[in-house]
Design a protein around this nucleic acid. Structure first.
Lengths: 127, 127
DNA sequence: CCTCCAAACTGTCACGTGATGGTTTTATTA
DNA sequence: TAATAAAACCATCACGTGACAGTTTGGAGG
């Protein structure tokens, strides 16, 4: 179901669902056009989230707590997505490193040249 | 100067300065307690940002445009932060990989075992 | 002059809001 | 029935808002 129906069923605002999605608490499917699709599992999850909130937990804490187990189902896809994210970020960093003096960066980051080089190799493996 | 004075001089709200800071458009110094300190350079920068905005540019575009050069000064810190983020995410992924069948993950991710092993090595280098 | 305190200031969190620009669904009209 | 126009829905951007908690600072009293 789309965000409107989902939010109503969950008893929260669309903006709340939006927020949870942005911070990665909910991970809906996406249509080709970008529309989010939430399922029954998401519904159970958000109800649990609202429960935890009344217990005084912060969203990030809830995320950590929930992130520990419910990944058995579709962990492969999830890992795939995470890999994409990480790859993008590695790209960013390497981009920065190229614009900077590599040696100086290494010094300030307290990382050895080998590790930096290693990082670069890894990136090549994934691209 | 602190955010209040800075925002006033720039002719924008504190929230706007806050926003720019959150998305990395401004990178103020921080006191031990976390207070942000903006300097003269930041002032010139934010005025330029406001200018670019009137030209219809999005903040991310402005960031990209400005990001091309002004990183010489504090790029090390920036990279450091990114490294932290990436490290956390790598941790997450490896955590996931441990809970999953490594071989199956490799298959579904279309990544060779060597690359996965490599990833694990890298993680050890940074932890 | 030093101490203590309230007022002013600040950061972060968890959304809210209005504008803009696509997408989907529904209704209408040819 | 197919094309199209209108209405409803959705995503993202750029902040705004209110609550809460920690920080800084200008006095008041000792």
């Amino acid at each position: 179901m789309k965000i409107g129906e989902f939010a109503e069923l969950a008893g929260v605002s669309k903006r709340t669902v939006d927020h949870y999605t942005n911070i990665g608490l909910l991970e809906p499917e996406r249509s080709a056009s970008g529309y989010r699709f939430y399922g029954k599992a998401d519904l159970e999850k958000i109800l649990l989230i609202e429960q935890k909130k009344t217990e005084g937990l912060a969203l990030e804490e809830i995320k950590a707590e929930l992130g520990a187990t419910p990944l058995q189902t579709d962990s492969a896809e999830l890992i795939g997505k995470k890999m994409e994210t990480i790859q993008k970020e590695l790209d960013e960093v390497l981009h920065l490193l190229k614009k900077t003096d590599l040696d100086q960066a290494a010094i300030k980051l307290e990382i050895s040249h080998e590790k930096l080089a290693m990082l670069q190799s890894i990136l090549h493996l994934f691209s």
